[in-house]
């Protein structure tokens, strides 16, 4: 087996591939899941979308909502609505 291993040595070891993949996916999930704010955000987003749709026809993804914690006593709720171009 050692001889076979020698010829295969140019290939990346499975463990280091695993580590790289994990570092990427874990970092991604931490930023999207862990810091995505309180549980009510998706509901809030849906309700705001419904209100806007009463007046303007917009896409599902036209409303983007984010909660940023800036320091201990300041949270900023950021609401982004993309309105369709006037025809």
């Amino acid at each position: 087996m050692a001889i076979l291993d020698f010829f295969r040595s140019d290939k990346k070891k499975a463990a280091s591939v695993a580590k790289e993949r994990l570092q990427i996916i874990v970092a991604h999930e931490r930023s999207t899941l862990r810091h995505s704010g309180p549980d009510y955000l998706p509901d809030l987003q849906r309700d705001i979308l419904a209100v806007i749709r009463k007046y303007v026809e917009v896409d599902q993804d036209a409303v983007n909502i984010q909660l940023d914690n800036r320091g201990d006593d300041l949270s900023v709720l950021e609401l982004n609505v993309t309105l369709p171009e006037e025809k």
């Binding site: 291993d5 070891k13 499975a14 463990a15 280091s16 695993a18 580590k19 994990l22």
Partner: peptide
């Protein structure tokens, strides 16, 4: 052998 994640990883 490099087949498994290490403690450090």
């Amino acid at each position: 052998r490099g087949d498994m994640l290490s403690v450090e990883d």
